[in-house]
Structures are given as C-alpha cells and as structure tokens.
C-alpha cells in the first residue's frame, strides 16, 4: 500500500495539495457547529471517530499482534528445542482468545472467558498501585515536605507554609465523616471542617489556573487552525 501511495504521490505536489484542501474542508465542517448542530458537523465527527479507530487498530495489529504471530511461527518451526518460547508465545494468545469469547453468547459467562479479563485487571491494578505510589504519592509528599525547608529568600518559608496548609486543606476538603459525640471529637471535627473549607478555596484557585491554561491551549489551537485556513489554504497571509 505504501509503494502504491508513493508511486501516486511521488511527484509531491498533488497529494499535498489534495491534503490541504481536505484538511481545510474538514476544518470548516467542524466549525459549522458554531451555527448549530448540522449534518456537516456530524460528518466531521464520524470521520474523526472512523479515522481514530482505523489508525489505532492498524498500529496495534501491525506492531503488537503481527510480530507475535511471526515469532510464534518461527518458534514452531524451531521445535523441539524452542518449546519454552512456543509456550511463552502461546499463553498470551490463549488469554486474548479467552477475552474474545465474550463475543459469543454461549461462552460469555464462562470461567474461560473471564481469565483474560482477570489477567488484565491483575496487571492493571498492580501497575496502577506501583505508579500511584512511586509516581504520585511519594513525590508529592516529598515535594510538600521540602517546600517548608529553609531557603535563601526571606519570604520563601511563607510560600512553603502556604503550600503545606493548602495541600492538607485540599486533602481535607474531601473528608465526609459523621462527627462523634465526645467533646474532643467535636473539636477535631470543627478544626478539620474549617481547614477543609479553606482547602476548598485552594482547590478553586487551582481550578481557575487550570481553566486559564486550558483556555490558552484552546485559543492556540483556534489560532493555528485559522492560520492554516488563511495561510496554507487560501494564501491570504
């Protein structure tokens, strides 16, 4: 397919010109939504879905499943010396096929059809726990503790203290516990509730900053698309 594509597009100009016109048309189709939800906008959204599905599935099949099948065939031809490699190649295929059994009504609820899913959940949960511990929890806690360490600038300690108060407050903002009856429990509840309310303020500041970054990114995308239409397509600027 690539050879065919290269032979058609070898002259360079035609495919690029066709691409620019296609991209411009698709951009305009998407922007028709500003008028209202039109048939043209739905064509663009269907094309986005179809393109994404086709691209991802082709890449996954070409880069993950195809090499596996090639390796399996090679290992089968090298038997009996390569029995371990054959088993290592076959086991994930068995797990994958068990997953595909979910498509058949007769096998949907069987133990075999659950094995692949259980494997995915097991691996996913373990990687998620490891990632959350080493990628989120420990670095964030470490950074929060380091922020209160004495630093050069005289006002930096105040910022560090604010970060600690805000971090704990934002964390306590999601505390939903019924207070106990004892006096110390009520005092503890009042303190944590107050701190949590303060933390909600920090969360809102964070959301505001995130929204501003989001707006900046989206405006950049809009400017990029308008520039593409006016420069690459219409050659006006």
């Amino acid at each position: 397919m690539d050879t065919l594509f290269n032979s058609v597009c070898s002259s360079g100009g035609f495919c690029d010109a066709l691409g620019v016109w296609l991209a411009a048309l698709l951009t305009i189709l998407v922007f028709t939504y500003l008028i209202r939800d039109t048939f043209l906008f739905r064509i663009a959204s269907s094309l986005l879905v179809g393109t994404a599905i086709g691209f991802v599935s082709a890449v996954v099949i070409r880069n993950v499943l195809y090499p596996l099948v090639i390796a399996l065939v090679d290992d089968i031809f090298a038997l009996p010396g390569s029995w371990l490699a054959v088993v290592i190649d076959l086991l994930p295929i068995v797990l994958g096929v068990s997953l595909l059994m979910k498509l058949t009504p007769n096998f949907r609820g069987t133990t075999f059809s659950n094995i692949g899913l259980a494997y995915l959940f097991g691996i996913g949960a373990a990687l998620a726990i490891g990632g959350a511990l080493s990628g989120l929890l420990v670095p964030q806690l470490t950074a929060t503790m380091i922020s209160v360490a004495p630093q050069g600038d005289s006002l930096d300690w105040l910022n560090g203290l604010l970060i600690v108060i805000g971090t704990l407050g934002a964390f306590l903002a999601f505390r939903f516990i019924q207070p106990g009856d004892r006096p110390w429990q009520r005092v503890y509840d009042t303190i944590t509730k107050g701190w949590g309310t303060l933390g909600r303020g920090f969360i809102m500041v964070a959301f505001g900053a995130l929204l501003a970054s989001l707006i900046s990114a989206r405006v950049s995308a809009l400017v990029g698309q308008l520039y593409f239409l006016l420069h690459d397509w219409l050659n006006l600027i």
């Binding site: 969360i203 500041v205 964070a206 995130l210």
Partner: peptide
C-alpha cells in the same frame, strides 16, 4: 503556591484512591 497546593491535595487523594481500588 496556591494552585500548586490545591492540585497537590487533589493528587494525594487520587493516589490514595488508586491504591485503595487496586
């Protein structure tokens, strides 16, 4: 400072949630 603190608090909650669910 304040935005970082807010995000950090949310991230700590997310991390604990992921660990508990896992």
């Amino acid at each position: 400072v304040p935005a970082l603190a807010g995000v950090r608090g949310i991230l700590l909650g997310v991390a604990l949630g992921i660990i508990a669910t896992g």
